[in-house]
């Protein structure tokens, strides 16, 4: 009984970390830059396709593909940011929604055109597919790896944004653009880099997620809802908030499915509604 409870906790936490990895980039672009980027999962999908292509066609090892997935998504986002998104930083939320959802449709059709509609095979090395047994409990290696990756990313991101000069510039540019410009901060440049960072993280998250959730052109839509839930429950602009929110949602989803499967998919929404009624700005929301 206790064993199964611990198992549920572990699985839920790992699932939460999967959601966190997918959504942390969005808490940078939507949360910090205040840009409603519904195309977030398109960048994640790009990362996924990069990883699959390199592994399947070029025979790269899984780990070597991860930085490339990050860079590819970041590079693609810089092009889009400079060409399109930049123009809408001060537009209304609705305009931003319309533009980015349009990009999602384009990316879905683009992926279907290039890769076809079929599901992409994701084959990891065997040592990532086994499990370690500890105290009678099985811990799948890949889930352990996801948890580790999420923790590392959280620490690095928080440290970079809170304690480095670049982080200070980003926060200044986001909080008060005119003042930041007046102080000689290259706001355009900072925004471009920040956006690339958020999208790069999306690419990395996508590359890490496909082993568990699969990859086809519908990916950009399927996981959009989950990442938005995580970011809004966590509170905009808060990396730590996204982390906590993803953990809560992951564990409650898993526990709900294990103990009351009849509730099934609804629980995740109930948790979201409950948390947002309690704290409308999200758990760690500042505005």
């Amino acid at each position: 009984m206790i064993g199964s409870f611990a198992g549920v906790l572990f699985d839920g936490f790992a699932y939460g970390m999967l959601l966190f990895l997918l959504s942390v980039g969005l808490s940078v672009t939507l949360g910090m830059m205040n840009f409603v980027n519904l195309a977030h999962c398109s960048f994640a999908m790009l990362g996924g396709y990069v990883t699959v292509t390199l592994m399947d066609r070029a025979g790269w090892p899984f780990f070597a593909t991860l930085p490339v997935a990050f860079l590819a998504a970041a590079a693609a986002s810089v092009v889009l940011e400079r060409a399109l998104f930049r123009r809408l930083y001060r537009a209304s939320d609705l305009d931003q929604c319309l533009l980015t959802i349009g990009i999602v449709f384009v990316s879905v059709a683009g992926a279907a055109y290039v890769y076809g509609t079929l599901q992409q095979p994701v084959q990891l090395p065997d040592y990532l597919r086994t499990a370690v047994t500890l105290g009678g409990l099985r811990f799948p290696v890949y889930r352990l790896f996801l948890i580790g990756a999420a923790l590392v990313i959280t620490v690095v991101l928080v440290a970079a944004l809170e304690y480095t000069r670049f982080g200070a510039r980003v926060r200044a540019a986001v909080d008060n653009q005119r003042m930041a410009r007046g102080l000689g901060i290259d706001v355009d440049g900072v925004f471009a880099v920040t956006f690339a960072l958020g999208s790069g993280l999306a690419g990395l998250g996508g590359a890490l997620a496909i082993e568990m959730v699969g990859l086809d052109p519908a990916f950009a839509f399927t996981y959009l809802i989950y990442v938005i839930i995580v970011v809004s429950v966590g509170g905009l602009a808060s990396i730590g908030g996204s982390f906590v929110a993803a953990t809560l949602i992951g564990i409650s989803d898993m526990a709900g499915k294990y103990y009351i499967p009849q509730l099934g998919a609804f629980l995740i929404y109930l948790v979201m509604v409950g948390l947002l009624m309690w704290r409308p700005a999200g758990l760690f929301g500042r505005r």
């Binding site: 199964s4 699985d11 699932y15 568990m212 959730v213 499915k257 499967p261």
Partner: peptide, 16 residues
């Protein structure tokens, strides 16, 4: 057991 039509992670159901 019946699980939701779009279900990303099956481990809880499999454990059951």
């Amino acid at each position: 057991v019946r699980f939701p039509v779009a279900n990303p992670d099956f481990s809880a159901f499999v454990q059951r």
